[in-house]
Design a protein around this nucleic acid. Structure first.
Lengths: 179, 179
DNA sequence: CATTAGTTTCACAAAACTGTGAATACTGAC
DNA sequence: GTCAGTATTCACAGTTTTGTGAAACTAATG
């Protein structure tokens, strides 16, 4: 025993996991993601069954139940988390869906379209699509719609190549030696 | 004269443009983009030559020069704005590059790889890629790298089809009647 | 070299955001 | 129906972010 909860080769190092969760969460926070929600997300990501109760999350992260409550609500609204009532108990388990990153990326794709639509509402005020400013806005909207369309296609490709193949327990055909 | 600065059919309606800038900026702010930077961005987007001095921006947006200064620095760091010193004057013009959205999307692509790399640093602590948590992290990293790679490809396709074709003043081949 | 227009920096006030503890409201068990 | 265990809501405090006014800095012009 080293003082760090490191079981053995291949075992989990809980302290290191703790650090890792915090590091990932802070990185996401830098990109505008709510801090506590990021902590919850990675606490779940790093738990072996991708599932914890609110109480377990609070204990693990050493934060109040209130903070967990707010964060899980936020994450659920983003479709990154599902709540699963536990039969025979009033506890709910919060679980990361199986392919959460794929799912959330797919469901967020719609925001490109929303922004494009909003952008185009300004074209008239700018004097129409023939004016420099008007055409600039149209180009932006076109670009966003292009991105959205392509995104749908590449997500479909991911779904087919990675999620379509049923048995793929190994990390993947492309371990991509850490760059 | 209606009280709104609307010249004629096809002319700009400055009041409406003002509202539009604010609306777009607030939408971006909801997604975590700094508010004032968003205002500056859309003030430039909606100006006919995509270029203004700091003073013009401050006047147009009715904010302090200090706020403009901070925001343009932020936007330049994101490659969404270039500073162009004006010869024979101490004024700098801040200009939106021609295909700003394309450019910034392309230059931001790298963040997927960064997050993927950071994510993989946790695999050991989780007990290796064979554990449930470890494989989950590997899948996330794989997905992010896949996205990044595909993004590079689709941006290249945009560049070739839209920026490669020299004359395309019309809004585009696909007006995409508002969905 | 002094003047002046324009921009940036700095310290500070206001607003927004985060997370907490306490109170409240659910929900299943008995 | 009552009890007990959980989850949620609410008001608040600490922190961070945002934007301002004033002063400092920079560069062209007479």
């Amino acid at each position: 025993m080293t003082g760090r909860h490191h079981d053995a080769e291949g075992g989990r190092d809980e302290d290191a996991v703790h650090d890792y969760v915090e590091q990932m969460a802070m990185t996401f926070a830098r990109f505008g993601f709510p801090r506590m929600a990021a902590r919850v997300l990675f606490a779940l990501t790093t738990s072996d069954d991708a599932s914890m109760t609110a109480g377990e999350l609070a204990e693990r992260l050493e934060v109040s139940p209130a903070a967990v409550s707010g964060s899980v609500r936020y994450l659920m609204q983003l479709n990154m988390l599902v709540r699963e009532p536990v039969r025979g108990s009033r506890r709910d388990r919060y679980r990361l869906p199986d392919h959460a990153w794929y799912e959330v990326t797919a469901s967020n794709g719609q925001i490109y379209e929303e922004i494009a639509k909003l952008a185009l509402t300004g074209v008239d005020a700018l004097g129409g699509p023939g004016t420099p400013a008007g055409s600039r806005v149209v180009e932006m909207a076109d670009f966003l719609r292009f991105l959205q369309g392509e995104m749908v296609a590449i997500l479909e490709r991911w779904r087919l190549t990675r999620l379509g193949a049923p048995e793929d327990a190994s990390p993947g055909p492309d371990p991509a030696g850490s760059v």
